[in-house]
Design a protein around this nucleic acid. Sequence first.
DNA 1: TTAAAAAGAGGATTATAAACCGTAGATTTG
DNA 2: CAAATCTACGGTTTATAATCCTCTTTTTAA
Lengths: 68, 68
Amino acid sequence: MKDLAKELGANIKAKRKEIGLAQDKFAELADLDRSYVGRIERGQVNITVDKLYALTKVLGCHARDLLP
Amino acid sequence: MKDLAKELGANIKAKRKEIGLAQDKFAELADLDRSYVGRIERGQVNITVDKLYALTKVLGCHARDLLP
DNA sequence: TTAAAAAGAGGATTATAAACCGTAGATTTG
DNA sequence: CAAATCTACGGTTTATAATCCTCTTTTTAA
């Protein structure tokens, strides 16, 4: 599970960088806590499917593109 | 979110049926509670990514194949 | 080199996912 | 038909996802 979260987090972060969006702004747009988004990107937490969708919506991609 | 869970649940159920696996046995193989798997299939709960993977592992498919 | 912006990190709390109990109702099978 | 099997469904409890708040560290730009 730890690997899964890490890979997913890395993918999310990469996508965010690609867009040139600050973590801070990213969290705000996804209506999530900034520190939590940080934990997600670092792979420290196991997120729910609806949070995953909240993120992909902002990133402008599909969950498929982020899952390992 | 409710729609998301419902669609995901329906996809999981369909895949399980396809394999000819009982919900009961399915839960056991995925190491999840039987009643909880029932709720997942009915779209009543918002599951975490690692539970999603636990299910796909048993179903012999990828998360991509189940996500709406 | 420094100030400001951005990301890392962690404790404490709240919300909710997931487990653990069961019973009722279908559906199938002998 | 009865018995066995499978699913729906709900209440309660436990584990943990997610929030909120704060401070530190790193990065970037001036």
